[in-house]
Protein backbone atom coordinates (compact mmCIF):
# COMPACT_ATOMS: atom_id res chain seq x y z
CA UNK A 1 0.00 0.00 0.00
CA UNK A 2 1.14 3.52 -0.77
CA UNK A 3 -1.02 6.55 -0.21
CA UNK A 4 0.34 10.06 0.15
CA UNK A 5 -0.62 13.67 -0.18
CA UNK A 6 1.86 16.50 -0.67
CA UNK A 7 2.17 20.03 -1.92
CA UNK A 8 3.26 20.23 -5.55
CA UNK A 9 6.56 21.92 -4.56
CA UNK A 10 7.70 18.86 -2.62
CA UNK A 11 7.32 16.62 -5.66
CA UNK A 12 8.82 19.21 -7.98
CA UNK A 13 11.92 19.32 -5.75
CA UNK A 14 12.23 15.59 -6.14
CA UNK A 15 11.92 15.86 -9.92
CA UNK A 16 14.40 18.74 -10.18
CA UNK A 17 17.02 16.78 -8.28
CA UNK A 18 16.59 13.53 -10.19
CA UNK A 19 15.43 14.10 -13.75
CA UNK A 20 18.56 15.84 -15.09
CA UNK A 21 20.53 12.70 -14.25
CA UNK A 22 18.33 9.74 -15.20
CA UNK A 23 15.34 8.72 -17.31
CA UNK A 24 14.09 6.03 -15.01
CA UNK A 25 14.40 5.77 -11.28
CA UNK A 26 13.35 3.43 -8.53
CA UNK A 27 11.49 4.98 -5.59
CA UNK A 28 12.13 2.98 -2.44
CA UNK A 29 9.02 3.58 -0.41
CA UNK A 30 8.75 2.66 3.26
CA UNK A 31 6.70 3.76 6.26
CA UNK A 32 9.42 6.37 6.93
CA UNK A 33 9.17 8.10 3.57
CA UNK A 34 10.69 7.91 0.09
CA UNK A 35 14.32 7.32 -0.77
CA UNK A 36 15.95 7.14 -4.17
CA UNK A 37 19.43 6.93 -5.56
CA UNK A 38 20.40 7.72 -9.12
CA UNK A 39 23.60 7.88 -11.15
CA UNK A 40 23.82 9.47 -14.58
CA UNK A 41 24.87 7.17 -17.46
CA UNK A 42 28.33 8.72 -17.64
CA UNK A 43 28.84 7.99 -13.91
CA UNK A 44 29.80 11.59 -13.25
CA UNK A 45 27.14 12.46 -10.69
CA UNK A 46 25.14 10.57 -8.11
CA UNK A 47 22.21 11.76 -6.09
CA UNK A 48 20.81 10.22 -2.95
CA UNK A 49 17.54 11.77 -1.92
CA UNK A 50 15.30 11.15 1.06
CA UNK A 51 11.96 12.75 1.69
CA UNK A 52 10.66 12.01 5.17
CA UNK A 53 7.05 11.16 5.68
CA UNK A 54 6.64 14.43 7.65
CA UNK A 55 7.19 16.37 4.42
CA UNK A 56 3.86 14.99 3.24
CA UNK A 57 0.47 16.16 4.46
CA UNK A 58 -0.56 12.52 4.59
CA UNK A 59 1.63 9.47 4.23
CA UNK A 60 0.86 5.79 4.60
CA UNK A 61 3.00 3.13 3.00
CA UNK A 62 4.29 -0.39 3.20
CA UNK A 63 7.76 -1.19 1.94
CA UNK A 64 7.79 -1.29 -1.87
CA UNK A 65 9.60 -0.21 -5.02
CA UNK A 66 8.03 2.02 -7.65
CA UNK A 67 9.68 2.29 -11.08
CA UNK A 68 9.12 5.81 -12.38
CA UNK A 69 9.83 7.33 -15.79
CA UNK A 70 11.03 10.76 -14.69
CA UNK A 71 10.29 12.63 -17.93
CA UNK A 72 6.75 11.39 -17.80
CA UNK A 73 6.34 12.22 -14.13
CA UNK A 74 7.81 15.69 -14.72
CA UNK A 75 5.36 16.23 -17.59
CA UNK A 76 2.44 15.34 -15.35
CA UNK A 77 3.65 17.57 -12.54
CA UNK A 78 3.81 20.49 -14.95
CA UNK A 79 0.01 20.33 -14.88
CA UNK A 80 0.09 21.36 -11.22
CA UNK A 81 0.58 24.88 -9.94
CA UNK A 82 2.53 25.62 -6.79
CA UNK A 83 0.36 25.29 -3.73
CA UNK A 84 -1.74 22.52 -5.28
CA UNK A 85 -2.19 19.51 -3.10
CA UNK A 86 -1.24 16.35 -4.99
CA UNK A 87 -2.42 12.92 -3.99
CA UNK A 88 -0.45 9.82 -4.92
CA UNK A 89 -1.87 6.33 -4.65
CA UNK A 90 -0.38 3.07 -5.82
CA UNK A 91 -2.71 0.81 -7.77
CA UNK A 92 -1.09 -2.59 -7.36
CA UNK A 93 -3.47 -4.39 -9.71
CA UNK A 94 -2.47 -2.37 -12.75
CA UNK A 95 0.99 -1.34 -11.43
CA UNK A 96 0.12 2.30 -11.82
CA UNK A 97 0.58 5.42 -9.77
CA UNK A 98 -2.67 7.33 -9.51
CA UNK A 99 -1.87 11.02 -9.34
CA UNK A 100 -4.65 13.41 -8.43
CA UNK A 101 -4.15 17.11 -9.13
CA UNK A 102 -7.27 19.08 -8.19
CA UNK A 103 -10.09 17.40 -10.07
CA UNK A 104 -7.73 15.76 -12.52
CA UNK A 105 -6.91 12.10 -12.10
CA UNK A 106 -3.87 10.91 -13.99
CA UNK A 107 -3.00 7.23 -13.87
CA UNK A 108 0.65 6.71 -14.71
CA UNK A 109 1.91 3.25 -15.70
CA UNK A 110 4.98 2.29 -13.69
CA UNK A 111 8.07 0.52 -15.00
CA UNK A 112 9.16 -2.93 -13.96
CA UNK A 113 11.89 -2.36 -11.37
CA UNK A 114 13.59 -5.70 -12.09
CA UNK A 115 17.01 -4.98 -13.58
CA UNK A 116 17.05 -1.36 -12.46
CA UNK A 117 20.37 -0.47 -10.85
CA UNK A 118 20.99 -0.15 -7.10
CA UNK A 119 24.03 2.13 -7.15
CA UNK A 120 26.38 1.97 -4.15
CA UNK A 121 27.61 5.23 -2.74
CA UNK A 122 31.43 5.37 -2.95
CA UNK A 123 33.18 6.26 0.31
CA UNK A 124 35.19 9.45 0.07
CA UNK A 125 37.75 10.86 2.48
CA UNK A 126 37.51 14.59 1.92
CA UNK A 127 39.65 16.91 4.06
CA UNK A 128 37.74 20.14 3.43
CA UNK A 129 34.27 21.08 4.62
CA UNK A 130 32.45 24.36 4.24
CA UNK A 131 28.93 25.47 5.08
CA UNK A 132 27.91 28.27 2.79
CA UNK A 133 24.67 30.08 2.13
CA UNK A 134 23.17 28.57 -1.03
CA UNK A 135 22.56 32.00 -2.56
CA UNK A 136 26.33 32.59 -2.71
CA UNK A 137 27.02 29.36 -4.58
CA UNK A 138 24.03 29.86 -6.89
CA UNK A 139 25.31 33.34 -7.79
CA UNK A 140 28.81 32.02 -8.40
CA UNK A 141 27.66 29.18 -10.63
CA UNK A 142 25.31 31.46 -12.60
CA UNK A 143 28.09 33.96 -13.21
CA UNK A 144 30.54 31.26 -14.28
CA UNK A 145 28.16 29.52 -16.64
CA UNK A 146 28.27 32.57 -18.93
CA UNK A 147 32.01 32.34 -19.50
CA UNK A 148 33.15 28.72 -19.14
CA UNK A 149 32.08 25.10 -18.94
CA UNK A 150 33.99 24.37 -15.76
CA UNK A 151 34.96 26.09 -12.54
CA UNK A 152 37.34 25.53 -9.66
CA UNK A 153 36.25 25.24 -6.03
CA UNK A 154 38.97 25.66 -3.47
CA UNK A 155 39.37 26.16 0.27
CA UNK A 156 42.01 26.49 2.94
CA UNK A 157 41.71 27.06 6.66
CA UNK A 158 40.75 30.75 6.21
CA UNK A 159 38.98 31.02 2.91
CA UNK A 160 36.52 29.49 0.44
CA UNK A 161 36.79 30.34 -3.23
CA UNK A 162 35.10 29.70 -6.52
CA UNK A 163 36.91 30.59 -9.73
CA UNK A 164 36.09 30.33 -13.43
CA UNK A 165 38.09 31.44 -16.42
CA UNK A 166 36.93 31.96 -19.99
CA UNK A 167 38.97 33.04 -23.00
CA UNK A 168 38.91 36.68 -21.93
CA UNK A 169 36.78 36.89 -18.77
CA UNK A 170 37.02 35.57 -15.23
CA UNK A 171 34.67 35.05 -12.30
CA UNK A 172 35.86 35.02 -8.72
CA UNK A 173 33.84 34.50 -5.56
CA UNK A 174 35.85 34.60 -2.38
CA UNK A 175 34.43 34.20 1.12
CA UNK A 176 36.53 34.43 4.28
CA UNK A 177 35.85 32.29 7.32
CA UNK A 178 33.78 34.96 9.11
CA UNK A 179 31.43 35.20 6.10
CA UNK A 180 30.75 31.48 6.20
CA UNK A 181 28.58 29.38 8.45
CA UNK A 182 31.39 26.90 8.96
CA UNK A 183 34.81 26.04 7.54
CA UNK A 184 37.23 23.25 8.39
CA UNK A 185 40.04 22.36 6.06
CA UNK A 186 43.23 20.41 6.62
CA UNK A 187 45.46 22.31 4.25
CA UNK A 188 44.54 23.46 0.74
CA UNK A 189 41.87 21.69 -1.26
CA UNK A 190 41.07 22.35 -4.88
CA UNK A 191 39.03 20.53 -7.52
CA UNK A 192 37.48 21.43 -10.87
CA UNK A 193 33.88 20.66 -11.78
CA UNK A 194 31.64 20.79 -14.83
CA UNK A 195 29.26 23.73 -14.66
CA UNK A 196 26.51 21.80 -16.49
CA UNK A 197 26.28 19.41 -13.58
CA UNK A 198 26.59 22.11 -10.94
CA UNK A 199 23.82 24.21 -12.40
CA UNK A 200 21.51 21.19 -12.52
CA UNK A 201 22.45 20.43 -8.95
CA UNK A 202 21.57 23.85 -7.57
CA UNK A 203 18.20 24.05 -9.33
CA UNK A 204 16.14 22.73 -6.41
CA UNK A 205 18.22 24.48 -3.73
CA UNK A 206 16.48 27.23 -1.75
CA UNK A 207 18.73 30.29 -1.74
CA UNK A 208 18.31 30.94 1.98
CA UNK A 209 19.31 27.39 2.95
CA UNK A 210 22.82 26.47 4.02
CA UNK A 211 24.71 24.09 1.79
CA UNK A 212 27.52 21.82 2.95
CA UNK A 213 30.36 21.17 0.53
CA UNK A 214 33.00 18.51 1.19
CA UNK A 215 36.09 18.94 -0.93
CA UNK A 216 39.40 17.24 -1.66
CA UNK A 217 42.19 17.65 -4.20
CA UNK A 218 41.15 16.53 -7.68
CA UNK A 219 38.56 14.42 -5.96
CA UNK A 220 34.80 14.20 -6.18
CA UNK A 221 32.84 16.66 -4.07
CA UNK A 222 30.00 15.75 -1.78
CA UNK A 223 27.35 18.43 -1.46
CA UNK A 224 24.53 18.16 1.03
CA UNK A 225 21.44 20.28 1.32
CA UNK A 226 17.86 20.21 2.51
CA UNK A 227 14.80 20.24 0.30
CA UNK A 228 11.07 19.89 0.92
CA UNK A 229 10.93 22.42 3.80
CA UNK A 230 13.91 20.79 5.53
CA UNK A 231 12.01 17.49 5.64
CA UNK A 232 14.03 16.18 2.77
CA UNK A 233 17.74 15.63 2.39
CA UNK A 234 19.94 15.45 -0.70
CA UNK A 235 23.47 14.13 -0.94
CA UNK A 236 24.99 14.92 -4.30
CA UNK A 237 28.29 13.43 -5.44
CA UNK A 238 30.05 14.96 -8.40
CA UNK A 239 33.25 13.67 -10.00
CA UNK A 240 35.91 16.28 -10.80
CA UNK A 241 37.52 17.32 -14.02
CA UNK A 242 41.26 17.02 -14.20
CA UNK A 243 43.35 19.81 -15.69
CA UNK A 244 45.31 18.86 -18.81
CA UNK A 245 47.77 16.05 -18.25
Amino acid sequence: MFNAKAKAEILKDLIDVTSPLVNEVKFNVSEKGINLRAVDPAHVAMVDLTIEKDAFDEFKADEMELGVDMDKFAGIMRLASSGDSISLTYDDKANRLVIQIGNLVRKMALIDTAGMPDPKMPTLELPGKVVVKASELIQGVRASEAISDHLAISMNKDNFELFAEGDTDTVNLSLSKDMLEGLTSNGDCKSLFSIDYLSNMIKPVKSSEPLTIHLGNDNPTRVEFAIANKKGHVTYLLAPRIESE
Partner: peptide, 11 residues
Amino acid sequence: IKEMKKQQTLF
Protein backbone atom coordinates in the same frame (compact mmCIF):
# COMPACT_ATOMS: atom_id res chain seq x y z
CA ILE B 1 37.77 13.52 -26.62
CA LYS B 2 40.58 15.36 -24.84
CA GLU B 3 38.00 17.51 -23.09
CA MET B 4 35.84 14.49 -22.31
CA LYS B 5 38.83 12.70 -20.83
CA LYS B 6 39.23 15.51 -18.33
CA GLN B 7 35.90 14.66 -16.77
CA GLN B 8 36.47 11.96 -14.17
CA THR B 9 33.86 9.45 -13.08
CA LEU B 10 32.70 8.39 -9.63
CA PHE B 11 33.49 4.71 -10.18
